[in-house]
């Protein structure tokens, strides 16, 4: 049925198969490169517009390093003036990494937050993406007047019922983003004046 193997035909066939497959994949890569980039960009823009007030241009900032961790940040401008910063902030939740996009307006108040990715328990920690009361409290949260930790730990954050660990992680991520904003704001001030 199958042909007798010898060194020559094995080499030829495997090389041939690999060449054809690579050519096919190369073509597919070129064709899908544009749409994949567009999809990634659309996702970033969607999360940015969810956490920041209206803006017309976004400047991506090179990795900002605070306390030894690199953060991915965006500066949003409306008619040339800064309306806010969006900071991608990650921490470890109950089930694994929890990544947030946190929008902070120039006065240091959190505008809104949104979850980029998480692996929390469905129905418990995963409610950080659906629990209206938990999500609403981040809108206009002023970290200079309130303490960014859950009420159980003496802070001002209402935890999700039965998901204190997720709520703690969420608060930690927001706190990290606020720290990044403070660093950015100090640097910005020094540069301008």
């Amino acid at each position: 049925m199958a042909i007798q193997s010898n060194l020559k035909n094995m080499t030829v066939v495997l090389t041939g198969v690999c060449l054809v497959c690579s050519a096919l994949l190369g073509g597919a890569y070129v064709l899908t490169k544009g749409p994949i980039e567009k999809a990634a960009q659309a996702k970033t823009e969607k999360s940015l517009s969810a956490v920041l007030p209206g803006f017309d241009t976004v400047e991506e900032m090179n990795n900002v390093s605070v306390d030894g961790t690199d953060y991915h940040c965006y500066k949003a401008l409306q008619g040339g003036s800064v309306v806010g910063y969006a900071i991608e902030s990650g921490t470890i939740g109950f089930g694994g990494p929890l990544t947030l996009m946190v929008g902070v307006t120039p006065d240091g108040v959190v505008y809104n937050t949104s979850v980029l990715s998480h692996s929390e328990t469905p129905g418990l920690g995963a409610k950080c993406t659906s629990d209206a009361k938990f999500m609403a409290q981040w809108k206009g949260f002023d970290p200079s007047a309130k303490i960014l930790s859950v009420k159980k730990d003496g802070g001002d954050v209402d935890a999700i019922t039965a998901s204190t660990i997720t709520s703690r992680a969420y608060s930690r991520a927001v706190q990290a983003a606020v720290n990044v904003f403070r660093t950015l704001n100090d640097e910005g001030g020094q540069d301008n004046e």
């Binding site: 199958a2 042909i3 198969v17």
Partner: peptide, 25 residues
């Protein structure tokens, strides 16, 4: 029919992996 017996598994895996990567992209 043209694949020598001794290398049929690697050849099949390459073909399968190509289609999977295609789906992924």
């Amino acid at each position: 029919p043209v694949i020598p017996d001794k290398v049929h598994i690697p050849a099949y895996i390459v073909i399968i992996a190509t289609f999977v990567t295609l789906v992924q992209l």
